[in-house]
Simulated assay, not measured.
Amino acid sequence: MSETSTHYYKAINWNAIEDQIDKSTWEKLTEQFWLDTRIPLSNDLDDWRTLSPMEHTLVGHVFGGLTLLDTLQSQDGIDQLRKDIRTPQELAVFNNIQFMESVHAKSYSSIFSTLNTDEEIDEIFTWTNGNPYLQKKARIVNEIYQNGTPLEKKVASVFLETFLFYSGFYTPLYYLGNNKLANVAEIIKLIIRDESVHGTYIGYKFQLGFNELSDDEQSRFKDWMYDLLYDLYNNEEQYTEMLYGDIGWVDDVETFLRYNANKALMNLGQDPLFPDTADDVNPIVMNGISNGTANHDFFSQVGNGYLLGHVEAMNDSDYDIGRPKKDDKKK
């Protein structure tokens, strides 16, 4: 019997791990599994009523934008990354990531259904689907997903998850730091915790391929990567000014964006581009992102603080997963 006929389809064997990062990432992602239905969003209605109409519009548009990006990631992004796997376990990890991206996208609709009227929800999605800056970044990223090389796709994914989301994440973290919308913000913190793992894992897989390139190939690829980041950042500046201009948060949000752009580069094993550090970010927002979980559902015994552990900010050292030491880099 030929080799082909005996290996028509191979079973995945989790007892023969080629890359331990696959196993540890799978365990991390399944350990921190959550669903939006376990967060008591209605408890935020009293806070919601104290916010101005301008703030209501801001929150709605922010979450509309995040919904669009998570939709892109769940429907196209992860599906493209799955085509370039190195190990069978990596495919299983991407299956998990893809599902959780769908959970993230649905979570925003749970927030809308709690805080907004049907008319307001229609306005949010009309605004989101017609916003030129949102559509531009979705187009830039998705064109790479559809036509880019395996390494280019990974860069686009890391830039999306570790950088582009954060213009939207700023708002709920700001309110959390001011003791408002705690349950809404907790969903965002759970999403951030997921995205931290996703970005770190995909960045690690990028580094494996990047380190196989020649010096000339690495140099050309770096030029492409930093040019892409500049293009995305310029668009994100305009998006931020449109979102936050009236409320006066533009400078603070852009600082937060640059800080997270550097985090994305760290995920990819590259040097930071911007001078901004955690010390430059609004401390109210950093306080919001670092707080542990607060909710516990005593009726179901499945509160996020009960089983999911603490939602914590990523430390700089967390981005060193698989990152080669300078001495180990390809000469």
Results as ranks from 00 to 15, higher is better:
Ser2Leu: 12
Tyr8Leu: 13
Ile12Arg: 13
Asn13Ile: 13
Gln20Gly: 08
Asp22Glu: 14
Trp26Val: 04
Glu27Val: 02
Lys28Phe: 15
Thr30Leu: 12
Glu31Thr: 10
Gln32Cys: 05
Trp34Asp: 07
Arg38Ser: 15
Ile39Ser: 00
Asn43Cys: 03
Asp44Lys: 09
Leu45Gln: 08
Trp48Ile: 11
Pro53Glu: 08
Glu55Ser: 10
Thr57Lys: 15
Thr57His: 15
Thr57Asn: 15
Gly64Met: 10
Gly65Pro: 14
Leu68Gln: 13
Leu68Val: 13
Ser74Val: 09
Gly77His: 01
Gly77Gln: 03
Asp79Ala: 14
Gln80Asp: 07
Arg86Lys: 11
Gln89Gly: 11
Glu90Asn: 11
Val93Pro: 09
Val93Trp: 11
Ile97Val: 14
Gln98Trp: 00
Phe99Arg: 12
Met100Cys: 00
Met100Glu: 07
Glu101Asn: 07
Val103Asp: 03
His104Cys: 07
Lys106Ser: 11
Tyr108Thr: 11
Ser109Tyr: 14
Phe112Asp: 08
Asn116Lys: 15
Asp118Ile: 01
Ile121Leu: 02
Glu123His: 09
Glu123Gly: 07
Thr126Glu: 13
Trp127Val: 04
Gly130Phe: 05
Gly130Ser: 15
Gln135Phe: 00
Gln135Tyr: 00
Ala138Cys: 11
Val141Trp: 00
Pro150Ser: 10
Leu151Gly: 01
Glu161His: 12
Phe163Cys: 02
Leu164Glu: 01
Tyr166Met: 14
Phe169Gln: 07
Tyr170Glu: 05
Thr171Lys: 03
Tyr175Gln: 12
Gly177Asp: 02
Asn178Ser: 06
Asn178His: 13
Asn179Ala: 02
Lys180Asp: 02
Ala182Arg: 02
Asn183Val: 06
Glu186Gln: 15
Ile191Gly: 09
Ile192Ser: 04
Asp194Gln: 02
Asp194Ala: 06
His198Val: 12
His198Thr: 10
Gly199Thr: 12
Gly199Asp: 07
Gln207Cys: 01
Phe210His: 12
Ser214Asp: 11
Ser214Tyr: 14
Asp216Trp: 01
Asp216Lys: 11
Glu217Lys: 06
Gln218Tyr: 01
Arg220Pro: 06
Lys222Ser: 08
Tyr230Met: 08
Asp231Phe: 01
Tyr233Gln: 09
Met242His: 08
Asp246Val: 15
Ile247Asp: 03
Gly248Phe: 09
Asp252Phe: 03
Asn260Met: 12
Ala261Trp: 00
Ala261Arg: 05
Leu268Trp: 04
Gly269Asn: 03
Asp280Phe: 05
Ile284Gln: 10
Thr293Arg: 03
Asn295Ala: 05
Asn295Gln: 13
His296Leu: 02
Asp297Leu: 04
Asp297Ile: 00
Phe299Pro: 00
Gly303Phe: 03
Gly305Glu: 12
Leu307His: 09
Ala313Ser: 11
Ala313Gly: 09
Met314Glu: 08
Ser317Cys: 02
Ser317Ala: 10
Asp320Leu: 14
Pro324Ile: 04
Asp327Pro: 03
Asp327Thr: 12
Asp328Ile: 00
